[in-house]
Write a protein that binds this DNA or RNA. Structure first.
Length: 876
RNA sequence: GGGAGCAUAGCUCAGCUGGUUUAGAGCAUCUGCCUUACAAGCAGAGGGUCCGCGGUUCGAACCCGUGUGCUCCCA
């Protein structure tokens, strides 16, 4: 079989994914094994694969594949989130393009467009995850608006309402005037903007026309003055003391409003006098509550002025901000205008400036249900990785605020509250149940008179049920699946949704399953570009992932993302790491080609494997790394695990081991050594498989006839490493490197052979490795010596000396310079060690093994210095 | 304004219990190699005021204080 020069991923990846699916390897059913369960953080149904998903899902796939290879019944559940605001926005935009306004459609018409759109474009991302190699159980694909799921959301709403955790209340909310919906605090993004601060004077009611007096306030929002119902000053502010209890007139509309004292006002800000507009500012609202001020809502839900404004009715708030200034000026109320920088809230979804607005909304009271959720994380019933997020979580949970769950949208779970014309309402599972409930109060009620709430629930009100509802834990309580798979094992998600989603899932888990939803939460970093900017559509710095997969292969993309992704830190994405991944795959491919060459050249040379240094050493290294990987994976240090496997493969296996066992030019390969090497290569592929599943499966099958697939191959127990072999290997590597360096520095061409003389008190330690050493430094012969060899290059490693004898004329100055440099280093080193040892307090206080180690360092340095001095003497 | 975190080589990061480190890795850089698996490669090398200052200690990249700079979350 002819293998291509370089590894070509495309066909290989398609072939193996289809094979795995055909075999049903990713499908899980409850059995007597332990489960290992992950539920995917459901991407938006409208989503397309971006870097964040790629990182997140690569991590999940690594965890799931590894669990599957460790004898667990691995189950990774896919699905999508209906994402009410984002999806509705896309559908509205799509309709607008077709010339259809949402307002011209009935709810049912709009929803049929939305479903049509969802069926057509929704779930593209799930197809893309297949390309990435994700081993999801596709038969379990869920959607947060599936009929059962819908029922469970309704059930939870009814239940929380019955328990008194859901209430309806008029509250100050963030209002998106473009989407005409309420936003949670988390959906508001504050940005610094350049504004103007307007100084406006209000005439005081002095009771006399002749005596004119004014109070000047400063505001960035002059368009809201029509909603003013008070002016507030600080009670200790001397400038205004005489005005306490007096009244002033709102400019242009002449409303008479009280001047009230309250500590809330900062004396130093603006003029020290604050206009109070309870309908349009959260702080003013609180002042209004405190002093029972009138609330005048001067704005419509689309950001235009309402009837209550008296002037500028129907005009947009920002137009009014401009138009009102000349009017104030001609009325003599404008004092001055200053430049001012302030923080303004923008809608995360529509980027419209958010209004504070009073509105009747549905709320979840969080205090009671959040307590077990806080405790679970604090007591490490649920473990956060990295643990620094525990603090953040505690801070938020201890200051938790009620959750506004209604959204003025159609796409989503419609709020199961039902109203009569008179405003009375019931919460019910269905219209019929609502009818029954109303009939108890009033037997004359007709079912046609009942109207369901027009609003939808916040998307997170359904996704907080995800870890159990994907197993129908609420629609079919206590079923065999939920009993087997719940609680799930690991949740992998981004830290920015720790409160939106993670915290709420924990709450719902305890409330509805009486148990935590997962044991570990792994927080990935945020994916940024090379310059450290967050990847986003608007910046256009998000690379085309499918393009990258086509270009480099999915394995290389996974590798590139994982190698650069330290646990809990942000990932600075750079395409060069994908190149590193591609190069690594190519390295694996070439190692395969080398083995295939040897396969054809096998002969029975009866090598004694038990006593072969290279064989023993590599087995040792393999098991050492396996054990290290085990520990790192338990700590979720995936990036580091991949790094040490990378180094094991590239350095230990390819650069050292394969070179050590390589037969001479056109010599045969020992059959036993070859077979053992195939086994090692297979084990490497197995270790690597969770990270780069495609190429490892391909190589596994090309190495040998296999009766199974690597993807399902079970890991073997790890052997305890023999440290003396590891140490001998390290010594060998050091000696080879030092001798090669010496060759390089003395300009010996790689092809020029040398004679190597070894001077050591411990000759036996070189017996096993002598042949390898000779081959690796291109020595035609090696001898042991007790005397220095004249006219040779000297290399000292620990207490041993190596003399390189060559026919080439050596440059004594170079040799001398090298030795002097080394001598200087060793002398300084010896000084620092001796200084430490001569410090009595060190010797007294430090642990004995530390002192012993310092003594060893001292002795070694002294020996080295002696060697170098001898060699220098030899040169002269 | 409140909270959390970070600062180590050109870049991205390790360094877990203060002592196997006059600080390590990968990438990048430089030098030499078309060596019959691989130039997407091989063999080597150079590169650091561990952000500044002060303290604790026999001993500090690590602990404490302080200053500076940056990032994120919340208001």
């Amino acid at each position: 079989m002819e293998l291509s020069k370089n590894y070509i991923p495309t066909d290989v990846e398609t072939k193996w994914y289809a094979h795995w699916i055909e075999k049903g390897y990713f499908n899980s059913k409850p059995d007597d094994r332990d489960p290992y369960t992950i539920v995917i953080p459901p991407p938006n149904v409208t989503g397309v694969l971006h870097m964040g998903h790629c990182l997140n899902n690569s991590i999940q796939d690594i965890l799931v594949r590894r669990a599957r290879m460790m004898g667990k019944n691995a189950c990774w559940v896919p699905g999508t989130d209906h994402a009410s605001i984002a999806t509705e926005a896309k559908v509205v935009a799509m309709l607008r393009e077709r010339g259809i306004a949402k307002s011209s459609l009935s709810r049912d018409e709009f929803l049929s467009y939305a479903w049509e759109w969802k069926e057509k474009y929704g779930g593209i991302i799930l197809q893309q995850l297949r390309k990435l190699g994700c081993s999801l159980d596709w038969d379990r694909t869920s959607f947060t608006m599936d009929p059962d799921y819908y029922q469970s959301v309704v059930k939870v709403f009814n239940d929380l309402y019955a328990k008194g955790h859901i209430y309806r209340g008029k509250r100050m909310i963030n209002w998106d005037v473009r989407a005409k919906t309420a936003l949670s605090d988390e959906e508001v993004i504050y940005k610094e903007v350049q504004s103007k601060l307007y100084y406006i004077r209000y005439r005081i009611d002095t009771g006399s026309e002749s005596h004119q007096e004014y109070i000047t306030i400063a505001t960035v929002r002059p368009e809201t003055i029509m909603g003013d119902t008070a002016i507030c000053v600080n009670p200790i502010d001397e400038r205004f003391k005489h005005l306490h209890g007096k009244f002033a007139f709102v400019p242009l509309i002449n409303r008479r409003i009280p001047i009230i004292p309250d500590e809330y006002v900062e004396i130093d800000f603006g003029t020290g006098a604050l206009k109070v507009t309870p309908a349009h500012d959260i702080n003013d609202y609180q002042l209004g509550q405190k002093y029972q001020l009138e609330i005048i809502d001067t704005m419509n839900d689309d950001g235009t002025m309402s009837e209550a404004s008296q002037i500028f009715i129907g005009e947009d708030r920002f137009d009014v901000r401009k138009k009102i200034i000349p009017e104030l000026e001609s009325a003599g109320n404008l004092v001055k205008i200053e430049e001012y920088t302030n923080q303004v809230g923008f809608s995360e979804r529509t980027d419209a400036v958010v209004e504070s607005r009073l509105s009747l909304q549905w709320w979840v009271s969080m205090k009671a249900i959040s307590e077990p959720a806080l405790k679970a994380v604090m007591d490490e019933e649920i473990n956060f990785h990295p643990s620094k997020f525990k603090n953040l979580y505690r801070h938020w949970m201890e200051n938790i605020k009620d959750w506004c769950i209604s959204r003025q949208l159609w796409w989503g779970h419609r709020i199961p509250a039902y109203y009569l014309e008179d405003g009375s309402f019931v919460v019910a599972h269905s219209l019929e149940e609502a009818f029954e409930k109303f009939k108890i109060q009033n037997s004359k009620v007709q079912i046609e008179d009942i109207k369901q709430d027009e609003d939808c629930l916040d998307t997170w009100f359904s996704s907080w049920l995800w870890p159990f509802e994907v197993f129908k834990g609420l629609s079919e309580p206590g079923n065999a699946e939920v009993k087997y798979y719940y609680p799930t094992n690991t949740l992998v998600t981004a830290p920015e949704i720790i409160f939106f989603w993670v915290a709420r899932m924990i709450m719902a888990g305890y409330e509805y399953q009486g148990e935590k939803p997962f044991s570990d939460v792994y927080f990935t970093g945020i994916v940024r570009d090379k310059q450290g900017r967050k990847m986003s559509k608007s910046l256009g710095n998000s690379p085309d992932l499918l393009g990258l997969i086509d270009q480099y292969g999915a394995d290389a993309v996974r590798f590139g993302i994982m190698i650069a992704s330290p646990a809990g830190n942000d990932l600075l994405f750079d395409e060069s790491s994908l190149e590193q991944g591609r190069n690594f795959n190519n390295k694996l491919w070439n190692a395969l080609k080398l083995l295939k060459m040897w396969e054809a050249r096998q002969a029975d040379l009866s090598t004694d494997l038990k006593n072969d240094f290279a064989i023993n050493w590599f087995e040792n290294r393999l098991h050492t790394v396996k054990a290290e990987v085990e520990v790192l994976m338990q700590q979720f240090r995936l990036s580091e695990a991949l790094k040490i496997i990378y180094s094991l493969v590239w350095d230990d296996f390819c650069s050292w081991y394969l070179e050590w066992i390589k037969p001479g030019f056109e010599k045969p390969m020992d059959k036993a050594v070859y077979q053992r090497t195939v086994t090692y290569f297979e084990e490497l592929m197995q270790l690597l498989h969770p990270f780069v599943p495609f190429i490892t499966e391909e190589i596994y099958h090309l190495l040998d006839e296999q009766s199974d697939d690597l993807c399902m191959k079970q890991n073997q127990p790890i052997k305890v490493a023999n440290e003396s072999i590891t140490a001998a290997g390290e010594l060998l590597k050091n000696v080879i490197s030092a001798l090669r360096d010496a060759r390089n520095k003395n300009q010996l061409k790689p092809k020029e052979t040398i004679k190597l003389h070894i001077q050591s008190e411990n000759i036996s330690s070189y017996q096993d490795i002598e042949k390898i050493l000779a081959k690796q430094v291109n020595a035609e012969e090696t001898k042991f010596t007790t005397e220095p060899i004249a006219n040779s290059i000297v290399v000292a490693i620990e207490k041993d000396k190596f003399f390189i004898e060559t026919e080439k004329v050596l440059d004594a100055t170079t040799l001398k310079a090298e030795l002097l440099k080394d001598l200087e280093y060793q002398t300084k080193f010896l000084q620092s060690v001796s200084l430490k040892l001569s410090n009595e307090r060190f010797v007294q206080n430090a642990k004995p093994e530390v002192v012993d180690f310092e003594r060893k360092k001292q002795a070694d340095a002294e020996a080295r210095i002696k060697t170098i001095e001898e060699s220098l003497g030899n040169l002269n």
